[in-house]
Nucleic acid binder design. Structure first.
Length: 596
RNA sequence: GGUCCCGUAGCUCAGCUGGAUAGAGCAACUGCCUUCUAAGCAGUAGGUCUUUGGUUCGAAUCCAAACGGGAUCACCA
């Protein structure tokens, strides 16, 4: 699309210069839009924008530019002006050339490399409970953003900062100790992360009963929460952990080990991976030297009690603590330190944090701090902030048991895919392992697409009662389109037909032209998605591709086309569509099956 | 209360760098499988784009305010 469209634009530019006798610098960039179906033409130029510059009415302008193009631009066959809109019809030969260039290109292997490295931090789980639906959105977003940027030519590093320490882990540990430490994931047959999560929930139950007891004896609720024996134990355990108590560290390692084993299985099933793991137990001490540096340079200041702050009132924010009065770190201290560590290790040009929007403020502050500290990497920082996944009952709350567990959801969707597949009964000749692989691909694809097609920054709704759809705007329907295309190319190979797009028939059916024009947009869509950090852009484009292909498929017969040339062309068009669908699927982490 | 995000069809979402009659899917209703995969296609119906002002030749899109929903404002992470 690039060549044809930009060529026309540059001619329009010249036309305006020649018509209005204006300096070419006075013109901003010309952009065209696709002509609406109700009108004749391929591209439309909106002429109102030039009325002031040229001192003429839009109709006149349209006619004059149209006339100029007809004479000077070899791509234009005809034009018409409706109100202020100049509709341009492109010659079939120009379209043909454009389509053939596209047929030659191998753009779906990825865009040319850009010597820029981007580090993407995502997932970042707590090690005290299993992953839930919210984590799925985070993981799929982070993974597909990484794939998207890789595809766009960047050097991408995927990092996971595991939150493996803190009071929440101590809670699981305390509850486990209270239970007598008799069972293990092995003995109970539970997945490690679910096993530890069970004790985290148990802690809360013990706490509740102890608080109730204290309240009955006249203690206020707030105080009771603090004074409950398990609360005290958890706090003491955190201190013991920090002072390196052998026993506590031992239990901590054991329990985290169980969780990691569970996470590993879940990550594998989700199809996400990481190049680098950071652990907060290593990084939580970092950042203090940077605070010292900032104090010396005057970016931070110290209050009488010894606490260290940054004043962001000039930025429209308030004062923010960066070091406690006792000299210990807070959350943001660690993040400063971790940012330094990442840069030291990877020298990345950009750094993206895939973190929920409840931390918007935190990242605004963090980025301000790093900028004020004069860090070279500060301009490349970006918070990919995504909205929560809501249930019809409202927010997910682990304590109220209203979470949708990631492992369970994946099981359910794979199962739904299985039921549907056997209902349709098309794959009777599949081996058992092929079948299971297909169910997995369909179930996981459905969840991924469901979560990725929505603009990341928006909150979204998930209704666990109705399982994720398999008809309509879903991964399943897209995967189906791909399977269909694969069937076409199998048959074409059998018949010894050429799969490459090497020739374009003189006249194209509407559905063919629409599909081709849409496929041409692929590169610019990838660029748009990567500059906006939005896999949703890819997902929506992918769906449109699938829809247009299906429409073409339903309207035109491929192997029964009137001429051999048309058969060849339609086969090649199908193959191309399949390539684009697969490329989008790869970016989204959705596998496209050959048969289903 | 301050700050930030969101508000489009009954439901879930596109469209938002201003352009012609606002698009999909689900749900409802009609058609289409003796011919390449009907998990599909074609159609009907469904809209004061939360409201009110402003900017503009032109606003779902930009600006302001109001209303509604959410997040956040800890020496928690």
């Amino acid at each position: 699309m690039k060549n044809l469209e930009s060529n026309i634009c540059s001619h329009i530019h010249k036309a305006i210069v020649s018509i209005g006798k204006v300096a070419s610098e006075q013109l901003s960039e010309i952009s065209l839009q696709a002509t609406k179906v109700e009108f004749e033409g391929d591209f439309t130029l909106v002429c109102f924008q030039f009325t002031r510059l040229l001192g003429k009415n839009p109709e006149q302008i349209g006619n004059e530019i149209g006339g100029y193009l007809l004479e000077n631009c070899s791509d234009i066959e005809n034009f018409n002006v409706v109100k202020g809109f100049l509709n341009l019809s492109v010659k079939d030969s120009s379209w043909k050339k454009e389509f053939l260039d596209f047929g030659d290109s191998e753009i779906w292997k990825g865009l040319p490399g850009k010597s820029e490295r981007i580090l993407i931090e995502y997932s970042s789980p707590n090690t005290n409970k299993p992953l839930h639906l919210g984590h799925l959105r985070n993981n799929f977003l982070g993974y597909s953003l990484s794939e998207l940027l890789k595809f766009a030519g960047y050097d991408v590093v995927k990092a996971n900062l595991v939150n493996d320490r803190g009071i929440h882990i101590c809670k699981s540990m305390v509850a486990y100790m209270e239970s007598g430490m008799t069972e293990t994931p092995e003995s109970s047959g539970m997945k490690g992360d679910h096993f530890v999560g069970k004790y985290y929930v148990q802690f809360d139950q013990i706490l509740k009963s102890q608080v109730a007891e204290l309240v009955k004896n006249g203690v206020s609720e707030d105080l009771a929460k603090e004074k409950a024996p398990v609360s005290i134990k958890a706090k003491k355990m955190l201190l013991d952990w920090e002072s390196g108590d052998k026993e506590v560290l031992g239990l901590w390692k054991t329990m985290n080990g169980w969780v990691y084993k569970g996470f590993e299985a879940t990550y594998k099933r989700m199809g996400v991976d990481f190049d680098k793991f950071y652990y907060e137990s290593d990084t939580y001490i970092l950042g203090k030297d940077v605070v010292d540096e900032g104090l010396a340079s005057g970016v931070f200041f110290k209050k009488e009690d010894g606490s260290v702050w940054i004043d962001l009132t000039n930025e429209g924010l308030d004062q923010k603590l960066v070091l406690r009065s006792d000299g210990t770190s807070v959350y943001i201290t660690q993040d400063i330190g971790t940012a330094e560590l990442k840069f030291k290790e990877f020298k990345m040009d950009r750094s993206v944090y895939v973190v929920g929007n409840e931390q918007d403020y935190h990242f605004v502050v963090l980025f301000h701090i790093l900028r004020k500290l004069g860090r070279s990497y500060a301009k490349g920082l970006h918070h990919l902030s995504y909205g929560m996944v809501d249930l019809p009952s409202g927010k997910m709350k682990s304590r109220e048991g209203t979470v949708v567990d990631a492992d369970e959801l994946m099981d359910e969707m794979v199962n739904t895919a299985k039921e549907r597949t056997s209902e349709l009964g098309k794959i009777a000749d599949f081996e058992a392992n092929e079948l299971n692989e297909l169910y997995e691909v369909l179930g996981l694809g459905a969840i991924k697409y469901f979560l990725l097609k929505v603009d990341p920054k928006k909150r979204m709704m998930f209704n666990p009662q109705e399982s994720i759809e398999l008809n309509g705007n879903t991964a399943t329907a897209i995967q189906y389109t791909h399977a269909r295309i694969s069937a076409i190319s199998r048959k074409a190979i059998q018949q010894g037909l050429e799969l490459k797009l090497t020739a374009i028939p003189d006249s194209l059916e509407k559905s063919e032209k629409d599909l081709l024009k849409h496929l041409l947009k692929f590169e610019s869509i990838v660029l748009e998605a990567s500059t906006e950090y939005s896999p949703a852009v890819i997902a929506n484009y992918l769906y449109e591709t699938s829809r247009l292909y299906n429409s073409f498929f339903a309207h035109e017969s491929i192997f029964q086309a009137s001429t051999a040339e048309k058969v060849q062309f339609r086969v090649a068009l199908s193959v191309k569509s399949g390539e684009v669908i697969r490329a989008c699927g790869k970016i989204l982490g959705i596998v496209m099956p050959e048969r289903m």
